[in-house]
Amino acid sequence: MQHTSTQDTLVGLFVAAGIVGLLFLALQVSNLSTFIEEDTYTVTARFENSGGLKIKSPVSAAGVKIGQVSAISFDPTTYESVVEMHINTKYNTIPDDTSASIFTAGLLGEQYVNLVPGGSEEYLKNGSTIEITQSAIILEKVIGQFLFKSAEEKAETKK
């Protein structure tokens, strides 16, 4: 059996390098460092239209990610979108009259839930519901409104 200690060292180095590669990918490249197995509590919000919101879409307050969307479902009785979110337990001082809106990051970016805190002394806990919500902006509606408005203005100036 051909074996030298040089070979063994090289194999050890190779395996170590491979593991370094994997760790690099896990930590430096991916979002692993944030939100793995951290404690979260669940909060629900209902939207008339949740637009392009997806599971794992971020939940932010003041521009900082404090949680992510865990489930989206359709309520067949109220015809609303029910969005369930996991919020990091570090942030447990969010007033229960906070409003939730769905914004778009950048012009064509992904959508996220933005929380604007209210003034209540009571805080959101596990199972709370956010009452005040604003739906996502649907691009088609905006364009439709714009066209309608400019048509109106044209008609006005003609008079």
Partner: peptide
């Protein structure tokens, strides 16, 4: 070896 080599490839590529 394969997963180790693939991870190395990606890391060096990045």
């Amino acid at each position: 070896s394969m997963p180790l080599l693939a991870a190395l490839f990606s890391m060096v590529g990045i």
